[in-house]
Design a protein around this nucleic acid. Sequence first.
RNA 1: GGGCGAUUAGCUCAGUCGGUUAGAGCGCUUCUCUGAUAAGGAAGAGGUCCCUGGUUCGAAUCCAGGAUCGCCCA
Length: 1108
Amino acid sequence: MPPRPVDPRRDLPELEQEVLERWREREVFKRSLAAREGAPQWVFYEGPPTANGRPGSHHVLSRVFKDIYPRYKTMRGYRVDRKGGWDCHGLPVEIGVEEQLGLTSKKEVEEYGIEAFNAKCRESVFTYLQEWDRLTERIGFWIDLDDAYRTLDESYIESVWWALAQIDAKGLLYEGHKVVPYCPRCGTALSSHEVALGYKDVVDPSVYVKLRLVGSDESLLVWTTTPWTLPGNVAVAVGPEIEYAKVRFRGETFMLAAALVERVLGDEAEVVERLSADELLGRRYEGPLFSGSAPAARQGGMPPYSVIAGDFVTTEDGTGLVHIAPAFGEDDFNVAAAAGMIERDDPGSLLNPVRLDGTYDERVGSIDGSRSYKGRFVKDPQLTEELIADLDANGLLLRRSDYEHSYPHCWRCGTPLIYYAKASWYIRTTVVKEAMLAGNETVSWHPAHIKHGRFGEWLKGNVDWALSRERYWGTPLPVWRCGQGHVHVVGSFAELAERSGASLADHHRPFVDDVQFPCPSAGADGQPCGAPMRRVPEVIDVWFDSGAMPFAQHHAPFERQDAFQAHFPADFVCEALDQTRGWFYSLLAVSTLLFDQAPYRNVVCLGLILDAEGQKMSKSKGNTVEPWQVLDEHGADAFRWYFFTSKQPWDGYRFSQEAIGEGVRLFLKQLWSTYFFYVLYANANAPRLEAVEGDLDSSASENGRRPDAFAGDHGAQLDRWALSRTAGTAALIAEKLDEYDATAAGRAIAELVDDLSNWYVRRSRRRFWDGEPAAFATLRECLLLVSKLLAPFCPFIADEIYDNLDGTLGSVHLCDFPVGDALPARDLDLEEAMATARQTVRLGLGARAKAKAKVRQPLAEAVVVADGRERAAIERLSEIVREELNVRRVRFVDAAEELGRYEVKANYRRLGPIFGKDMPLAAEAIAALDPQRVAGVVLSGEGGETLGISVAGREHTLSAEDVILTMSAPEGYSVEREGAHAVALELTIDEDLRQEGQAREIVHAVQNARKNAGLEVEDRISLTLAGDPRLVAAASAHRDYLKGETLTIELALAGAEQAASANGATRGGVAGGGQADGGEAGGGAAPHRETASIDGLTLSIELSRFGA
RNA sequence: GGGCGAUUAGCUCAGUCGGUUAGAGCGCUUCUCUGAUAAGGAAGAGGUCCCUGGUUCGAAUCCAGGAUCGCCCA
């Protein structure tokens, strides 16, 4: 059946809507899965987005990459289930709702009511669900959104609880401390993102404080910009690599870093002794400061008020001795823990005299003990002054000064943040660090450097996972505790119901907070403790939610354990680069903790999208590109194509509408017009083609190997080439997609389409006009193959082409990806020969341009200088070269004969490794040889003669690969050359050639007139030519050619006088152009008239549709 | 401050194992071709391959240091 007609100017976004409709009608996605029932699984995990904001261009990026590989693998025969997912919990959701409700602190949230607040959160999570769904469908991302998992579902939460109970059973869940940026006014810890929002430059007082060593008159000199942290001091840290000095200064003795003596104390200071960090370690000083209570010494740890080691200590500022307050700094906390002064999972071991509201507790008072600082806000400037005065009064202050620095403030209320140790629940991931590293080794990362770089390095520095959040909208931490300090982790809803008797419809806060049950732990007497257990107030870090998705999405192990097992681990996950610390990590950590293996085999990381100026896109800058804008203007295929092919996706994008438009013009439009060309002429020649249809169907079967060539030999080479070229590209694309290199694969398709359009079709046009079946079969086959190769990239246009040219399976997405036997035969010799022939054409066109000889003017001869393989290749395809260059003959000559002389150069690449240091000598020796002789020997191996060089005592026989031959210009001859290959043109134009050139110009003018007259390509015409007798004579001499080219049935030729009278007056036309003089010749009886000017001669054209 | 990446033509990007004239597309100039293509072809202009050292017969490519930009972490 002939294909339906194609609009060459088809609006692609509009076309895509129709294709979408067809997919819906034919249920193509569903059928593509059903067709792979029972096939091997290839597993994809959807990293769940949150639908509380509009989807942006970066979401399109990740979603199209999440689409291309599953589509490809499906076509390769795998079953690729694609379950959607939504991330529903977390602080961003809460903050959105707080803004909506005008709440600014946790206190206000609690006054509003947790139940109502969480209800708002639940609503807001799906605010933009519809837009997400619509976008997902519009961009052609095939994923099952009807059966998507949602982290807020009861089933999901229960699986998360199960996971935590498993982890607890392994003894890996504990309560410890975490130092967090904390806003004492809002009572909230801030995420790093929020902290980054609130940096301000401020001036704080900084103080140098003397800490007297026990039993000595020497003092450690420490420096701090936060005097309020001094009551929390328990140690002083030294840098292990730093050299220290004992100095005399104004009658006192201080210890500080040797490198800082002068900067801190000036030139008055006298260095008494130099000592290493080791000599200071373990020294004790007098404490506490400002505090009535000191922490207890711990078994096996350093006692309080000792000098300990800290890697982070530098000599960039301060004194090289750092005051350590573990409650108020993460480094402080870590070094104190490393020194055994505190225990992470023992909250009692930490000295923290600051309350949650940011005021001191009763333990803090003046140094002499005379008054209390209880209730004072620690960042109050007045308090700071009092503390400093107190130090001074007690002889502990060396100096104070003002220090300007950038300090974080609460982005909501502007209060300076404090770093503050808060109780938090942890997973002891450090225990499985080695297992995670081992798991990472089994993963293929794209790009590869992530594996041992960003991700691997980060894994090596793994610290325990701070799991809990003091928030409201999240999976509740399933930890219950009784008054005796016993802890129980609940692993299922059934267990909770059984223990408590309470059955909840919703296990979120606040409902779950009310559930109590008797403590099951063994008491001191061996009997169950039985004290009432209450749930701890925290919820779980949302990253744990998403990390649990491999099983939680199926509600495993409670339900569908088999589904989980069949889909674990994933073959493929794909997210933005920032997920290395996010989802990529949480998936790996959870899977390692529970199953001791990596949850994915291949990871593709995507980069950031920047605007055209390289600025990060953000709503606040207003430089975002809305996806809908792109989709409406250019369409989904164009959007996808840009992301796939403009660059490697992990490098990030400089994004602009123009860049997408370029892809449309250069690729999609080119493909479309090649397809249009095929359909146009297939329909124009339909009767003729139908006559041989049986042959075509048998030769271009769906997946079977086709015969190498079609009947007829005129162009059989081009056909074989096009098919071979397409087969080679198909193999390359499969290889690249298997390596997750969509960029290289896509670019290869573009090159193929360009070759088909600008070489195959261009050189074969006449065969399509003539209705040659082999040409149609070849182009159809190539286009169908392209549609399959392109299907994962641009699923819309690919499906349209397939549907119109074949359509047997209902969609290209139900086809197999063409590999192996399904591909046409390769002919590598022919591909190479064609490349050489095209180079010859390039040279010949260059020679024409140089001689200002228009291509339309035939020339007598092209002289091609080539030897050996090159010559054989060009000879094989000389007919193509001849036509393309528009010459009567192609003549071959050996290089030595007439057109040029060879130059010979050493091939460094080959000889370098052989001669090494002597390479320059070898190059000289080769340059000294007679190039013609080298060429003769090397190219044709005349008479078994060999050539040798001798360098530094080494003999070497030259082979063809050892030298590079180039042509040198002959005297006074104009040729184009490249390498060992040149083309010269015979420029003499005799009368015969001139007349043929004029005949071609006439044809060209008539073709323009046909177009101006609005005729269809297959319309036959009656034509009358008049004007300059020389042109009429040329037309007469090439009468048959002229009639054939212009589909003229009746041709009338007239003299100049007639032409003038027919037109009234002769108009000067533009060379090669024409001017319409009549109406539409196609429609009415009035003939179309115009005049043209050829070589300065006038031609009058009058034509009408034959039979009209 | 740490980890990772990037830096090649006016712009967007390739560049294989280190090989001697560093490429493509877009844009620009000139010419040309066109019975599918807002296309195509030829020629031209346009380069401190971020910088400095080093390794090597030979470095855009490998090594070290530095600069700038970006991401992540602190």
